[in-house]
Amino acid sequence: MELLCPAGNLSSFKMAIDNGADAVYVGLKNDTNARHFAGLNFTEERLEEAVAYAHDRSKKIHIAINTYAHAEQWDKWKFAVDAAAALNIDALIVADMSVLGYAAERYPDLELHLSVQASATNAGAIEYYQECFNVKRIVLPRVLSIHQVKQLARSTNIELEVFAFGSLCIMAEGRCHLSSYLTGESPNMNGVCSPASHVQWQESDGRLTSRLNNVLIDSYQPHEQAGYPTLCKGRFQIDSNTTAFHALEEPTSLNTLSLLPELFKIGVTALKIEGRQRSSAYVKQVTRVWRDAIDHCSSNMVVNDLHDWEKRLESLSEGSCTTLGAYHKSWQ
């Protein structure tokens, strides 16, 4: 089972490799990838260094070119594919059909992974991408229960990559326009969700409020821990007559450690750690814990055996609170 870790810069990249990642995924420094944040991502020069660092240590590097190409700037996505291919990277993570089509035709030997942003949640969609673009692996959206992942593994021969740890997208990725509805910028078009440029914090009368493009996302009492105003994790009222609550989702993050034995059994190819936007110290710690857990885990382990690793991960999670998300039916 491959441990695939995130890196937003070269220092995180090295941390991930040094601490046990089998592969690391990165993005270019533009809006061709879904973590298009200021100060993040790789220039071509840095990418070259990263490729050498990984390959010298027999590790892999995947490049995410996983936003949807704008018609007027389609060549930007083409150049991103060309640049990645020229660097002898190990896999491209792509969502847009036109970009997949270009990569498959121009670079038939380049391994293609279907990005989570393509929202392929079923055997029919998977077959489409396999047959049309020879996609080798699919990154599953965080909407399937563990039982559904199991069913899918039985009905397709494609490699499955699942999200194991990190921020939790509660909507089917690639099928959420909530961010552009509030701010004009979205994951599909701009590679951002609830962009920092639209966030406003305000403190008055002891209350801290967070806004996104002037829309109140949450309001905190002094004793409450404030979180980044990702719009689906705000507190809202329903039909204007209830107390505000987390109508969509609490500010929790995903942690599937307790499912590790099950994921082994299913034959999942890769575990993905989310967080290209996180610090190198974070990448280092999370990578270490998951490396140890994977190395010690076997399909007959029970949840209690995983207790130590669980504890180490808890402190690294958003609001120190984690969930199994959609993998666990009761979350849905």
């Binding site: 965080r142 909407v143 399937l144 229960s145 509660i170 909507m171 089917a172 099928r175 959420c176 326009h177 909530l178 509805y181 109508a247 969509l248 989702e249 998300g325 959609a326 979350w331 849905q332």
Partner: peptide, 8 residues
Amino acid sequence: LAYSARCF
């Protein structure tokens, strides 16, 4: 605007 595994 969006689709989820969860029923809101």
